[in-house]
């Protein structure tokens, strides 16, 4: 694994009125890794995603992507630079077809300045083939099931040809079989497309299983960083989040061999 830095979040502070959602958070993401971002509800995970993707402007700190300061850039420019994301609450363009939804990703993604309609369409079809939504290409996005909508979120993000992919609770609300499928898809996408991924996840065994490193946020502060095994052994994390240590260790042990 190369150790080149792709994204660095430096002392980010974000406040909403009196509430401090992120407090002096520092995170480094290396090229080619999957970084898990976990923490209890309200810990600031989605807020951090919104800061990275430019939806929120932080009160303090800087975000560097590929050594470029992107802190004050509007979201669409950041996407063009190569950061794509999915949303925790899916946001499909309901009246557009699945294909059109995916084409938007390709048209306005990293290749936006030079891609033609025809190429975007081809890219979108390939992506739908890859994620397994090709049979629904012509269906309006509103007709999809939740799992399919989540997959569409992923397809739209992948069609943008990003370098960095932000996955916001891609697995929430899915049943175990669907989780398994989605996890495989994410792994496959990462390998084939040489992606770097940050994933916010509540499905603990999944993130412990797939992520190489994990960052734990609690009340807007980073309280731990390390490999899944290290995180599972950090007393403060266990207190704040994982509950009983035994239980947490059992998760990690039980799931590791399945790989």
């Amino acid at each position: 694994m190369s150790k080149a830095t792709l994204l660095s979040v430096k002392s980010i502070t974000k406040k909403f009125g009196g509430l401090v959602a992120l407090n002096n958070v520092n995170i480094t993401v290396y090229e080619g890794e999957i970084l898990g971002l976990i923490g209890p509800n309200g810990a600031g995970k989605t807020t951090l995603f919104n800061v990275i993707s430019g939806v929120y402007k932080p009160e303090g700190g800087r975000v560097f992507f590929d050594s470029v300061d992107i802190t004050r850039k509007p979201p669409h420019q950041i996407t063009r630079m190569g950061i794509a994301r999915t949303h925790q609450i899916v946001k499909p363009f309901n009246e557009m077809t699945v294909l059109e939804n995916t084409m938007i990703g390709a048209l306005f993604g990293r290749l936006a300045s030079r891609i033609t309609m025809g190429e975007a369409r081809k890219k979108a079809l390939e992506t739908l083939e890859f994620v397994g939504l090709i049979d629904n290409a012509d269906a309006p996005a509103s007709k999809l099931t939740l799992h399919e909508k989540k997959t569409l979120e992923l397809a739209r993000a992948l069609a943008a040809e990003p370098k960095l992919l932000l996955l916001d609770e891609e697995l929430a609300g899915l049943n175990p079989k669907e989780i398994e499928e989605s996890l495989n898809l994410i792994k496959q996408a990462k390998d084939e497309k040489e992606l770097t991924i940050i994933m916010v996840e509540h499905v603990m065994h999944a993130v412990m299983n797939i992520a190489e490193r994990i960052v734990v946020l609690h009340h807007g502060e980073k309280i731990a960083e390390g490999t899944p095994m290290e995180i599972a052994n950090t007393p403060r994390v266990i207190e704040a989040y994982l509950g009983e240590k035994e239980l947490a260790l059992k998760f990690v042990k039980k799931l590791k061999p399945q790989k």
Binding site: V55, P75, H76, T79, E100
Partner: peptide
């Protein structure tokens, strides 16, 4: 296509580039 995506969900459209 960009305009229609704005109509459908402007925030999502902006984030998608």
């Amino acid at each position: 296509m960009g305009l229609v995506s704005i109509r459908e969900d402007e925030d999502a459209a902006e984030v998608m580039g």
